[in-house]
Design a protein around this nucleic acid. Structure first.
Length: 254
DNA sequence: ATGGCTTGAGTGTCAAGA
């Protein structure tokens, strides 16, 4: 079973690339973030034609998440239950007996800003919800743009990024509190190349120079760790004309 | 040099991303 996540930075712009990638990789499940499309405009028909059922929670202009699956997924939740939030950042679904939590963590803008406080509150709410959910549904994956580079090796220039948003200690502590529920960082379950990133700034030829961060993640609940076979970043879509600034991450389960 | 690009809004030029 192949399960993937990709921040597409506008599903409207990226739909041709998503369809091409689905045809090439044929994942069983693909989680999308930053669809930036209201639900009434979601391209369900094009995806159905490609063989994928979709569940989605979107809004105009910003945010938006979706779960695509070859076998029709069952909706579990949109948004973090018990956490009032206008921003469409979470959708959870059951896919072939696996609970898929697709998340677009807040960016945080700058350490100490209101948006940074929102980011930490959002992650704390998610962690609280998942603590009880994991007990009830142990076969769980949390995938998405988590907007945190958990360690210095996930940053192209740790000195330059030290203390900055996406890399700051409060964010890394929140990431550790989340993984302390038992989740493994799927990417780190396997030997990986150095300087492996999932996001590169559009500016300064950052992708060509591999000036990136690893901020998109697949977290694997303890019950699923024995089934994990491989995890990789696919940089190919980032080479396309008009690419998303993020690359997909793929987990294979046995 | 707090810049550099991309998207969506909307037709000016800005907010937001990371």
């Amino acid at each position: 079973m192949k399960i993937a996540t990709w921040n597409v930075n506008s599903l409207k712009v990226r739909l041709p690339q998503v369809l091409e990638w689905l045809a090439l990789e044929r994942p069983d499940v693909l989680c999308l973030q930053e669809t930036k499309v209201p639900d009434e405009a979601f391209p369900s028909d094009a995806l159905a034609h490609a063989g994928y059922s979709a569940l989605f929670a979107g809004q105009k202009t910003y945010n938006g998440v979706a779960v695509l699956a070859t076998h029709a997924p069952t909706l579990v939740a949109t948004g973090i239950p018990g956490f009032a939030d206008e921003q469409k950042r979470l959708i959870a679904a059951d896919c072939d007996g696996i609970r898929i939590v697709c998340a677009y963590f807040p960016n945080g803008q700058a350490v100490g800003s209101d948006k940074f406080a929102y980011k930490l509150a959002w992650i704390a709410a998610l962690t609280g919800w998942l603590r009880s959910e994991l007990a009830k549904h142990p076969e769980m994956l949390l995938l998405g743009d988590l907007n945190i580079a958990p360690e210095d090796r996930d940053v192209h220039d740790p000195k330059a990024w030290e203390g900055q948003v996406l890399c700051s200690e409060p964010e890394r502590a929140a990431f550790r509190a989340l993984t302390a529920l038992g989740f493994a960082d799927g990417f780190r379950l396997f030997e990986q190349p150095e300087r492996a990133f999932t996001w590169w700034d559009y500016r300064m030829a950052a992708f060509r120079r591999n000036l990136g961060l690893r901020i998109d993640h697949v977290l694997v609940a303890p019950a699923l760790v024995p089934r994990a076979r491989a995890c990789r970043i696919d940089p190919e879509p980032r080479r396309a004309e008009r690419p998303s600034d993020h690359a997909p991450v793929i987990l294979e389960l046995g």
